[in-house]
Design a protein around this nucleic acid. Structure first.
Lengths: 155, 155
DNA sequence: ATTGATATCAAGAATTATTCTAAATAAAAA
DNA sequence: TTTTTATTTAGAATAATTCTTGATATCAAT
């Protein structure tokens, strides 16, 4: 049921409408999804709301939250949590980690190396079923790191 | 300065008192730390508060938050975030991941395999400095998984 | 012990992200 | 068109956390 929503959005890329086992492809959902695709900078719900509002002034913050939730449940979007900060959202479905720069606050996608598995480095408990794996890194991004060295020079 | 607090707590294990470059080893901090050491089930701040209150009825929630923050900053305690749930705290300083069971909500420490590095599986951006790495897994723990199969038997 | 400076505590107010509620609207099915 | 169901909207409610302020405790020096 949820997978049909997914298929629908991916295939059509249009808000043609149509029932999908109960889930509907609405203007709002399409808009929110487009906003995420257009600027892949891991916006928060509020940021998505502000961007969405520019194209559909009537949309509400609650609806943005609803849409993000629905899209996440449908597997089209990933909710990104780093520490206690507001959740961010990204439409990159490949397995990846997130890096947040404590200086400029930008979030970078970190891809998995070829032929590697995240799970392989952990002593996983036998008999457990793992549904989700969230990897978040905090630090200073290459840009800020370079800028820091130039100014401070304090090794 | 912060490392002295750390050393102090680790070495003495007592609330002897004493200045530590500004940071003080107070009864409250020691208590909060002891609570974490006594039951290593990754309690939330509120849970730590309730347990602490049994031993020091005058302690306040705000103080528990302060202590947890101080201990985290000192590197004695790790703040564990899984999704948007309340932060949990653990005194396990070895590098490890966390697994939370969506059924029983218990949190398990997942150790790193010998000779493995988490970083090794990721395409890390060159020039970045990584200060923190948080790995959180969600799923069903071995116990709940076994119980589930007995009852449902569904797929 | 007394004093002065500073760190910490406690209680409650404030903040913030998020979820909930209920009525209105839109879309699909009949 | 009518009926049914899903969704949107606005605002209230919630929950975790942080902030504020005055009171207390601790430290360092006398």
């Amino acid at each position: 049921m949820v997978s049909k929503l997914r298929q629908d959005i991916a295939a059509k890329g249009e808000s043609g409408g149509g029932a999908l086992g109960g889930l509907r492809m609405t203007k709002q959902r399409k808009l929110v999804y487009d906003v995420l695709l257009d600027e892949r900078d891991h916006p928060t719900a509020t940021e998505v709301y502000m961007r969405s509002k520019q194209r559909m002034s009537s949309i509400s913050l609650a609806t943005v939250y609803n849409c993000l939730e629905t899209l996440s449940a449908a597997g089209l979007v990933k909710q990104v949590n780093v520490g206690r900060d507001a959740s961010r959202y990204c439409p990159n479905l490949a397995q990846h980690a997130h890096f947040i720069c404590v200086k400029c606050e930008q979030v970078l996608d970190i891809d998995l190396k070829n032929d590697k598995e995240v799970e392989s480095v952990w002593e996983l408990p036998e008999g457990a079923r793992i549904d989700q794996l969230e990897v978040a890194m905090k630090g200073v991004c290459p840009d800020c790191n370079a800028a820091e060295k130039e100014v401070g020079g304090n090794g």
